[in-house]
């Protein structure tokens, strides 16, 4: 120990004498101190990074109610949910039929129309309007937009085609358009989120 009346040899720090088996008593204090500091650093860094996650007010925007009474078969509307476009589409009978005829075993992301809609409401296809490739808004919801080779949606960014069930059929999109959590409050009002 360096007390006021012992001379410390600067080039021969007190840490250097080896003990039994090359282990020095000071190793314990070194390891303990460094591990303690390490735990502290992790505990500090976590909130400093986590602050970038969505804040409470952003999460609070997470559900909307939409009146769908004015959407005729064959029409779709775009709405906005969590600052992202949402497509609500009233499928026509031929569109439902076309979707059901597909053999899903050949699909990139195999799902039936029934998997993607609610029982008794198979004509209501509700999906995010966010291409699963890199996030552009596909065309096909508004009147007069191209619907792609499969009559659903077409993403102009890198050419992804979606069918009438919003499933990816051609192009780079890896998965089907995402179906958000939703429920019908009445026959004409749907709550998303």
């Amino acid at each position: 120990m360096a007390s006021v009346d012992t001379t410390v040899e600067p080039n021969d720090p007190v840490t250097s004498e080896p003990g039994i088996g090359g282990v020095r008593r000071r190793d314990f204090i070194n390891i303990a101190a460094v591990s303690f500091a390490g735990v502290g650093v992790v505990a500090t860094v976590f909130p400093l990074v986590n602050q970038m996650n969505p804040s409470a007010d952003v999460l609070a925007l997470s559900s909307i109610e939409v009146d769908i009474s004015a959407i005729e078969p064959g029409q779709a509307i775009k709405s906005s949910w969590r600052k992202q476009p949402i497509f609500i589409r009233n499928l026509t009978a031929p569109e439902i039929e076309a979707a059901n005829q597909v053999d899903i075993s050949g699909l990139r992301d195999p799902e039936t129309l029934a998997d993607r809609t609610q029982v008794g409401k198979e004509n209501w296809l509700i999906t995010l309007g966010v291409c699963t490739h890199l996030g552009c808004v596909p065309l096909g919801a508004a009147q007069g937009e191209v619907k792609g080779e499969y009559g659903g949606y077409f993403c102009p960014c890198h050419g992804s085609h979606y069918d009438t069930a919003g499933r990816t059929r051609k192009g780079p999109a890896p998965t089907n358009l995402e179906v958000p959590e939703y429920s019908f409050l009445t026959d004409t009002v749907v709550k998303i989120g």
């Binding site: 909130p47 400093l48 986590n50 602050q51 996650n53 804040s55 409470a56 007010d57 952003v58």
Partner: peptide, 12 residues
Amino acid sequence: HIMRDVNSGWMI
């Protein structure tokens, strides 16, 4: 907003 909404914002 920092105090109430942002994750750990009050702490920062």
